[in-house]
Simulated assay, not measured.
Amino acid sequence: EPLLKSDNVLVQDCASSALARIGTAASIPALMDNGRPEALRALGVMNAEGVDRALEKIAASKDDAASAAAIEALAIRGRRDLVPAFFTYADGKGRAAPKAAVEAIGQVGDIAVLEQLAGLMMAKEASPLSRDVLNTIVAIMRRSSDPAKAVDILVAQMSGASPRSQANILQALVQTGSQEALKPLADACRSNDESLQKLAVKLLAGWKSADGIPTMLELAGEETMSMPNHVNLMRGVSRLLAAQRRVDKTLAKQALDTCRRAEEVEMFQAILEKKK
């Protein structure tokens, strides 16, 4: 334990690794004081009586930094049973502990907590924590075995939500890159809320894969789509077509037919010429 205070961080980490194997609950304070990732990992894997109980007590304390470290260690220990407690901590005061709690939920939670996470994100929409919740939602959705269900859960939360919360949910959908997210994103591009529509178009125009091209072209071809939004969508289409090793001729022809301006036609013709 004294080596955890060494001037050499390598010695500190080796001491933490050793305590992970031979330490007891009595070593918790020393590891907590060290605070390095290796020390938290040691707390997360230490197989000794009383460790879980002691960490739970610290997690529930009012010491923001200590609570955060204990929460992180409990997440490493895979304590799925503590998800309800993590939500309580996430809604608490301070910054470090709520952030650690949200990350812990992302580490041990699954699709079953998505609805509650969306509710938390909406409740904290004016707080920096909303960004942490968004990242956690994305992490859970990316590893979900049922992306369509995950998308449905999030889309259901958009009804009645504030424009800011709807925007956060849209960003979560887009970051997953799931094809199931394209329809709700397209629906938002037709929203009567101008700011939400503008954001949705911007997000769709930045779609990372070619499976978004048909949706972009469909929207860009609608007469009700404003010129600025049309331009953004067509730029997104051109970016994705230009990235293809072999341009999809059907999509390229559809893009040319959808163009409203001469410069757009020239842009797509240049892409086709370059690919030849």
Rank of each mutant, 00 (worst) to 15 (best):
K198R: 14
T215V: 14
R131E: 07
D7T: 13
D7M: 09
N47S: 13
M227T: 09
D132M: 06
G92C: 10
L82W: 03
E264R: 11
P29N: 09
A205M: 09
Q254V: 00
F87M: 01
N34P: 10
D81I: 09
L251S: 04
T215W: 10
P2I: 03
L74W: 01
L219M: 02
C189I: 10
S159R: 14
A85L: 05
L170D: 07
A101V: 03
E273R: 15
S178Y: 04
I169T: 02
V113H: 07
K202T: 13
S195Y: 09
S61F: 08
P228A: 08
N135G: 02
S195N: 12
H230A: 06
A150I: 02
Q244A: 11
R21Q: 15
N192V: 00
S195G: 10
G50D: 02
A126H: 04
L182R: 11
M158H: 05
L170Q: 04
I137M: 10
G236E: 10
S144I: 00
I28F: 06
L4P: 05
G119T: 02
F86A: 07
A262N: 12
V113W: 00
S195T: 12
L199F: 09
P2G: 06
R53H: 01
R190S: 13
R190H: 13
P2V: 01
L199C: 09
L196A: 02
V45L: 09
A30S: 12
A100S: 14
N168H: 03
D248G: 08
L154I: 15
T176Q: 13
Q171N: 05
V151Y: 02
L241A: 13
P98L: 02
P84N: 10
Y89A: 11
N229L: 13
I22Y: 07
L217R: 10
H230D: 04
L10I: 07
A59Q: 08
Q269W: 00
R235E: 05
E56D: 06
A60F: 03
M227V: 05
L120I: 07
E180F: 15
V237N: 06
A68N: 05
A104Y: 08
L199W: 12
K275V: 14
V83F: 06
V102Y: 01
L74A: 04
G160D: 03
A85I: 04
V138N: 05
D193N: 14
N135F: 00
G236H: 03
A181W: 01
A97K: 15
P37L: 03
K198E: 15
F87N: 07
F268C: 02
A26Q: 13
A66P: 01
R164D: 08
L134C: 02
E222P: 03
K275I: 09
S191M: 03
N232I: 00
A188I: 03
T176K: 12
A90R: 05
E194S: 14
M267F: 09
S165D: 00
L272I: 06
G94R: 06
